[in-house]
Structures are given as C-alpha cells and as structure tokens.
Amino acid sequence: MTNTPKAIVLAGYGLNCEEETLYAFKYNGIDGDIVHINDLIDNPAMLDNYEILAVPGGFSYGDDTGSGNAFAQKMRLSLQADLEKFVARDTLVIGICNGCQILSNLGLVPGARDVAVTYNQSSRYQCRWIDVAMNGASKSPWLQGIDRMHIPVAHGEGRFMMSEDTLAKLTDNDQIAATYIKPDGSAAQGEFPYNPNGSTADIAAITNETGRVIAIMPHPERGMFSWQRDDYDILKDTAQREGRDLPEPSDGLAIFANAARYFGVSAKTKAA
C-alpha cells in the first residue's frame, strides 16, 4: 500500500464522540485528524486531503430544534457544495448517532432530505446494548462481511421515519443497512427494548445509493473492544475457565476495519 488513507472527524458545538471515533480509525491503520467545524468552514479545501469523513456522535446544539438540525444547517449554509464534491469522489462517509441525524438532515442519506430521525417513541433517552442485523444485500463498503453486531445505542431521537414511498425505495435499493433484531436473530418488529426507539421497519442504519455514505444510530466505536461490552464480565470469565486470552476486538471494530480495507489497508491483526 502506498498512501495511508486519512479520516477527518468533525468536532464542535456539542459533538462529543470525536476522540473514540478517531481512535477506531487509527486502530485499523487509518490516519486522521479531529477538525473543528469552524476550521473546516474557514478552509473547506482541506477536505481534499481526506478519503473518509466521519460525523461522530454527540449533542450538537443540545438537540435543540430537533437533533442534528442546527448543525446540519451550519454545514448546509457553508459547506453544501464541498460536501457534494467530497461524496462524488471515491470517498467514504459515516455519521454515527448525532452524525446520523446530521447526515439525514443534510440529505446525504438516503440522497435527499427524505428521512427524519426523530423522538424515540418513549420520548426518553435510552442508553442500552442492542443487536442489529446487517443487510447482506447491501453494497456498502462499510458493511462487507458483517452479519450482525452487538453494540450500544445512546440517544433520545433515534426513530427513523419516512413516507411509505421512501421506505419502499430504500428497501428496493438495499439502502437499509441495519435493522434491530432480538438476541435470537428474529426481527424486533418494533418491540421495545429490542427496537429501542420505535424506528420504522426496525431501521438502525441507512446508506446513500452508492453505499459509501452510511448513517447509523448505534455506536460501533463503543462496541469495538470486548472490554467495552455489557457481557464483558461473562466473556472474560469464560475465557479464563477455558484457559485462553479474551481477544480485544469486538463487533463494532469491523465497520472501521472495512473502511481500512476499502482503501487497501490490510486488516490490523491484534494478538488474540
């Protein structure tokens, strides 16, 4: 491999997962920087230096006026053309949680502002571990080889809502990237807590038409290591009884490893 791919991870105005998100990329051999949104607005040309754009989780503008809405407006008014140019290149974009809400408000997923990510059915913030199934038919580079993930959600507004037409279109185009499932693998069918927010069709993540832009409500970067998991104590104990070491990587890491692989970085192998 000749050039190490670079990720730009946005920060500012209440985004708050930028450090662990950058860590996830770096762990997989991708270089990167945390860049404050105001610095990007001052110098949008810097996007040319990056292959990956990540809008991390957080509470931009405190979720005031609808989660992600105000931050999307800030980006739209000063960066819309630059973002479109970035997406048109052979790049990858990921929005996680608040980033997912921002990308949806910007219309970068599913391609226009056709999807709302809004108040949980319970109207209450939920932090809990869930299971998602990835859409095997998706062509998204982010998802290749991943069947399902056990990762956490942490949001008050994670409910995907859209018209019947949009839902049909996303389904037909395999733009629904991940759906909430029960631990036994069956569809959550809207049932709390498996579907933690009442999301339409149990949707947890969507992509744009190319699959290179993904917006995902759960947090893969909080479920990338076994010690982060809610069942870590059991996994650790079991490994000890079986006389082996517990490998550090966990489900969420694969998303970032896929980004690395897409740009030709061989998967980093951690001693297991």
């Binding site: 708050n16 942490a154 290591f225």
Partner: peptide
C-alpha cells in the same frame, strides 16, 4: 435512571 444516562460515551465503560 441508569438507561437515561449515557454511561458509555467516550468508549470507556467497563463495568456499568
């Protein structure tokens, strides 16, 4: 109470 509070932001939660 526990589920309303984000207890794994910063990716640092071990025992929750």
């Amino acid at each position: 109470i526990a589920t309303q509070y984000d207890h794994n932001v910063q990716g640092s939660a071990v025992l929750g």
